[in-house]
Design a protein around this nucleic acid. Structure first.
Lengths: 276, 276
DNA sequence: GAATCAAGTTCCGGAATATGGAAGATTCTT
DNA sequence: AAGAATCTTCCATATTCCGGAACTTGATTC
């Protein structure tokens, strides 16, 4: 159902399906300001009723996440949020190691690279490092692309049980983005099969004109993989025939990612056993 | 109060009056781990029922706050959380006071100074004040430099658990920027150790020819520090032998930053008690 | 390779929480 | 001191969350 949205400006709506996520969105909004904010300001920017905002802010203040300053009129981030942020960054070494692999790959190939995974019926970008080339495609990390017209998507589809794959493709219409987009299920099945055989996939301008992409699977613990690493670039710098140049590097990076995953798993297990 | 639990104790429930705050507590718990966690582990540590946790985690994953790795068995922080943390630290409300400390330091030393933190596998500039000298290196706040060839990076690496540090360096490309860049892991380990011992670090043209940098840690609340304050300058104005001149000032500034932090914390507590 | 076991996932009725319009306080403004 | 704007409290309603029980998946053992 739709929430009241009487005001027609551009209230940077807090996107969030549940109240819980909406509250996190509020924190994000406050954290993104380089100055303190008032209730009134927040009401205007979010479009939320003031009593609602007041209640949210009050509970954050009670928990030490936010603090009130200037005679209690303005809100800013509190010590607990700073602890959280610092702790997060210091401990995001999984990110760190993974990010480092991407950095090295971009350095070597000279083009933007991504780590991707399947999320629902779309391909999600887990992390990304952009090339320094002045001309490049910009897709923000956390964004999503359709499965049927991305190199990663075609590989990840191949890792799904046939049954699951079928029902997934049924629900998501195969939209035609360019002339090269595969929109026929049978044809897509054949393409997925082919990619699985050869161990890599190419997106040859199937999603965006001028965008070419190579992807390989990150080896999973046992049999199935759920992540890809991919390189993308404009078609005049990266072409389908460049496989010999980019695939070895991609495979090396994929192997590096696998070893990170294994370490992470080992630590995770050690942790759970430690509390027995 | 202490927030990080070193090892498992009783089902130490997530402190939080409302479900909303409890969910934030869950994020804090995950962010405080230097490794990925499983649903089972979280269930044990929080005492929450598994279905409840599963639902919470699923919604976080759907929002991009968390990501799942290792065959979807383990949870870790996602890109959106990292953005949040960085944005928060760069805009922190005591920014004003923090900036003032930097200004005073630059005034005293006559060279550009920065406040830095670790983010993933790189060093992030949280804030920065440039000298008025006509010749200076330009790096904007928000930009990043490699850990292995920056004074801040070498100090912050020393604050990580050995295991974590090893894993990070293993996968980070120790790129050679200048003749002085340390690219050998063992050698870097020794250097990090040495910096930790002496309480400061020097970057002696290890990243950019002609750029020398001194850094000290900002004392943290819980033993470990997560931020540095540093001064940098061209090698003909700032030399490794200038420690006696710059280190006392740096230490004073670091102490000033710590006290700002403590004040903020005290205010936060006062606020939260007022509503108890 | 079938049995066993542990971890992860789904279901759904009941319980607890969030919602926001209206109205009452508290400032700031003139 | 009246007027205006913002902040705060109230509370009936509707939405959301909760978690025991049951089911599925995947790993381990015999």
């Amino acid at each position: 159902m739709e929430r009241n949205r009487p005001v027609s400006d551009q209230p940077s709506r807090l996107t969030g399906s549940s109240p819980l996520l909406r509250m996190f969105g509020l924190l994000e909004l406050i954290a993104s300001k380089d100055h303190l904010v008032s209730l009134q300001t927040l009401a205007q920017e979010t479009g939320l009723p003031k009593p609602t905002l007041h209640r949210m802010l009050a509970s954050f203040v009670a928990e030490g996440l936010l603090i009130r300053q200037n005679d209690r009129r303005l809100y800013g981030t509190g010590p607990r949020l700073r602890d959280f942020a610092e702790s997060l960054l210091m401990n995001a070494t999984q990110h760190g190691a993974r990010h480092a692999v991407l950095l090295a790959l971009v350095e070597e190939l000279g083009e933007t690279c991504n780590i991707t995974a399947l999320s629902g019926s779309e391909v999600l970008y887990l992390d990304r490092v952009e090339t320094n080339e002045p001309l490049r495609f910009h897709l923000s990390p956390g964004s999503r692309v359709p499965v049927h017209c991305s190199a990663s998507g075609k590989l990840l589809l191949g890792q799904l049980p046939a049954e699951t794959r079928r029902s997934l493709l049924m629900h998501a219409p195969l939209e035609q983005y360019t002339d090269a987009t595969i929109t026929d299920v049978a044809q897509l099945d054949a393409e997925v099969e082919k990619c699985g055989q050869q161990g890599y996939a190419i997106d040859n301008e199937e999603f965006i004109y001028g965008l070419v992409c190579f992807a390989v699977l990150v080896p999973g613990g046992h049999g199935r993989s759920r992540q890809c690493i991919a390189v993308q670039g404009p078609s005049f710098r990266l072409q389908p025939s460049d496989g010999d140049r980019v695939l070895p590097a991609l495979r090396r990076a994929a192997e590096a990612l696998r070893s990170i995953e294994v370490e992470g798993r080992a630590m995770g297990l050690a942790q759970s056993e430690a509390s027995a």
